[in-house]
């Protein structure tokens, strides 16, 4: 392990602390937990298969079908993850974006956390301290999802009637309102920065709109999964050309 004091609170060299060996070890550990779970589940399913009225050939077919169906969506997540590497470093991206969370929730969490420290993701205010607090906040939020799953699954299994009696209108409206409110606020926040930020947000939105329209109109299902990846790549290309050609003085 490097030194016992690797950090420099004011440095913007995020990757110096984001790629520490201990973080790599813990990230690989999370992957190991998933692999172990999969192995245990497959063995348990094989043993109980006859009782469930499913043959071992059908178990194998299901495994393969699930694996093949996941290739496209999984590669789409890979693309988004690679784009985020310079912001969070590999271990954090692997665990937060690749697994537990998603690009949308984790970058939103990180941005909200950075704001509480008076900073913004990726610019000169995004120091090692801001990164560490953002990483902590998004990990705690991800942990709450897992804790809720650990607590609620046994209750739901027992068929807890109180959980089922939750008003369906409440279940439909409040989460949608929370998500839309959060992302509308974060989006408008970006519009208040530089002209490059504004054009990047608009490009990303337009690309996603086109992807979803084409996916719907011409029945191209994979475009729906790749929409975010396309939005990010084209958004970044536009940002790069505006930023480097200096056409936009605001940057």
């Amino acid at each position: 392990m490097i030194t016992s004091r690797p950090g420099d609170p004011g440095s913007t060299d995020i990757l110096a602390i984001a790629n520490l060996p201990i973080l790599w070890i813990l990230a690989v550990g999370v992957f190991a937990a998933i692999i172990l779970q999969t192995v245990v589940y497959i063995r348990a399913a094989r043993i109980a298969a006859p009782a469930a009225g499913i043959s071992s050939a059908e178990l194998k077919t299901s495994f393969r079908a699930g694996a093949v169906a996941a290739i496209g969506p999984s590669l789409a997540v890979v693309l988004v993850s690679v784009a985020l590497l310079s912001l969070f470093g590999t271990p954090a991206v692997l665990v937060r974006v690749g697994l537990v969370g998603s690009a949308a929730t984790e970058t939103a969490s990180a941005s909200i956390a950075a704001t509480t420290m008076g900073a913004a993701l990726g610019d000169a205010s995004y120091t090692q301290s801001v990164f560490a607090v953002a990483f902590m906040a998004m990990s705690l939020s991800g942990a709450m999802w897992m804790i809720a799953t650990l607590v609620l699954t046994p209750l739901l299994r027992r068929g807890d009637s109180r959980l089922r009696s939750v008003n369906p209108a409440l279940m439909a409206i409040i989460p949608a309102a929370a998500l839309l409110g959060a992302f509308a606020s974060l989006g408008i926040g970006e519009l208040g920065k530089t002209p490059v930020h504004i054009l990047t947000v608009l490009t990303s939105a337009a690309v996603m709109g086109m992807c979803l329209f084409v996916a719907h109109r011409f029945n191209v299902a994979w475009l729906r999964e790749w929409g975010l990846g396309c939005s990010i790549v084209i958004g970044l290309i536009v940002a790069y050309s505006l930023h480097t050609t200096g056409l936009m003085p605001g940057a």
């Binding site: 995020i14 839309l180 990303s204 337009a206």
Partner: peptide
């Protein structure tokens, strides 16, 4: 390139995510 990616990754995610949310949630009023 990585500097630009770091600086503009958030706006380039947020625009797409908003459109995706609006379309998938189908709640115009909200």
């Amino acid at each position: 390139v990585t500097d630009v990616a770091r600086l503009y990754i958030f706006p380039s995610i947020i625009g797409g995510v908003i459109v995706q949310l609006v379309v998938s949630l189908k709640q115009p009023r909200v």
